[in-house]
């Protein structure tokens, strides 16, 4: 279950989370505090890398659209759901406002 996030929500990566970008199997996130693992596809990895607390989710999705061709309409909904679930599981932390 996720937490409520909107395009205006700003999240940043939990600095304790390990990102492993594997050659063949995509990427994997490991939260050593909770012992949880998440497997990321390319979209998830892109979103993860942009979660540095400096931009809101709307801006992250806009960057995604700029970086890839023929991005389906539902990418925003997927990105919000992903971010909400990752925040609920402690992989991402909400911030009150974008950090410079």
């Amino acid at each position: 279950m996720g937490i409520d996030v909107t395009p205006a929500t700003v999240l940043r990566r939990n600095p304790d989370v390990v990102l492993r970008e594997e050659d063949t199997d995509g990427a994997l996130l490991f939260n050593p505090d909770t012992n949880q693992i998440r497997v990321l596809n390319a979209t998830g990895l892109f979103v993860w890398k942009f979660m540095d607390g400096t931009r809101d989710l709307g801006a992250v999705v806009a960057s995604f659209r700029e970086s890839f061709e023929e991005v389906p309409q539902e990418v925003e909904a997927h990105a919000l759901a992903f971010a909400g679930e990752m925040a609920a599981a402690g992989f991402l932390h909400p911030t009150d406002s974008p950090q410079a």
């Binding site: 492993r20 970008e21 594997e22 050659d23």
Partner: peptide, 9 residues
Amino acid sequence: MGLQKFPQE
């Protein structure tokens, strides 16, 4: 079997 970039354990 794809070899991990580096072992996890």
